[in-house]
Design a protein around this nucleic acid. Structure first.
Lengths: 203, 203
DNA sequence: GTCTATATTTGGATAGAC
DNA sequence: GTCTATCCAAATATAGAC
């Protein structure tokens, strides 16, 4: 997992700030590694510090609390999603574009199950993302909303349904057959459902 | 939540065993209560013991470990689902029956979010249900499989898809609007998808 | 910025008397 | 069956020197 967007990183940075951000990114990388191995909730600051050749209290110079660490991971995860979506080369046809975008989203989820859990499931007992991190999450959701609107489904129901069905497929794929396609192969089918059925079901 | 099926309860029971099972059920009830308040992973054996007027070590006479407590909750949750499904009065028409069964499932999930998390999400860090508990879970899944088969979708794909879409709706409903219908109102629509689309999508 | 040392809390689990 | 007493491990967080 690339250690991008560990910090807003907007504008110029003094060398000191640059080094600090690089170290933060390094810590985040190690945190994801531990999360992959033991689960998100089981990240230990002691072991995390070991991985980056630090003593545990030194982490507090980079993150004021463990919750802040989770929050940074949360924001980083959505920043990665936004970044990948920005780089996608989508077909011109809006429906084909929506399909491709959804397929990418499913692949994004199953590629890193632990990231999926942090971003889309209430996975860490006491953790709630900060308002700033939620904004990044909403930016990511905006892409799906625009793809849907371009494909002829601009309403809230379509977005709700699309999100739920995609997360349902991703969740089952990850829980039951990580690495396979038994669930995510239904991607195109559910896209058709969302953009086709509103006419027939006048709820 | 009724404290049923705390224990297999098959055959006759000596009075001593009966009292023990009643106490187990009482402990389970209190555990669900704590889970609702603080989350599943945050259940503390000390506070749990307080709730049933015991000292913490006494719990170990009823459950050999905390994992065993979670396992009993897991089995109990699925037993409740099976029990409710057994009592359902379904329409004769197989498609209408499938719809009703799915609507009930969604209602079952949103009625007790913490139970949904334990049964259908990897919610407690180290917990894995025992083989015996998994059998109860499979019995529950069997109902959905039979309803689908009767409605003309006997294949594995239909069951996979149905499960994923239902869990997707339930998960979003619980996460974003507990108590509402913004997602579960799509129940009938996704049922139609699963039983109608196989023809058109020859995957 | 990073360290040592430590505070503080909390948790699950066990031993053994009664 | 239930208790008291205790163990042991692990965690986050803080204080303050350098």
């Amino acid at each position: 997992m690339p250690s991008q967007a560990a910090t807003p990183n907007t504008g110029e940075q003094q060398p000191a700030a640059r080094r600090r951000n690089a170290r933060r990114a390094q810590i985040l990388d190690a945190a994801w590694e531990l999360a992959r191995r033991d689960g998100l909730a089981a990240i230990s600051l002691r072991e995390l510090a070991d991985r980056v050749d630090m003593r545990q209290p030194s982490l507090y110079w980079y993150f004021p609390s463990k919750a802040a660490l989770y929050d940074a991971m949360f924001a980083q995860g959505f920043a990665q999603l936004v970044d990948e979506r920005e780089r996608l080369r989508l077909p011109r046809d809006p429906i084909a574009a929506l399909r491709a975008g959804c397929r990418h989203f499913l692949e994004f989820c199953v590629r890193e199950p632990v990231r999926y859990q942090l971003l889309f499931q209430p996975s860490v007992p006491g953790f709630e993302p900060s308002a700033e991190s939620m904004r990044v999450a909403e930016v990511a959701l905006g892409y799906l909303a625009r793809w849907l609107a371009a494909a002829g489904a601009p309403d809230r129901d379509a977005l709700d349904l699309m999100r739920a069905l995609l997360l349902g497929l991703a969740g089952e794929q990850i829980a039951n057959e990580p690495g396979g396609k038994r669930w995510i192969k239904f991607a195109d089918r559910i896209v058709d459902v969302v953009i086709e059925t509103p006419r027939r079901h006048r709820a």
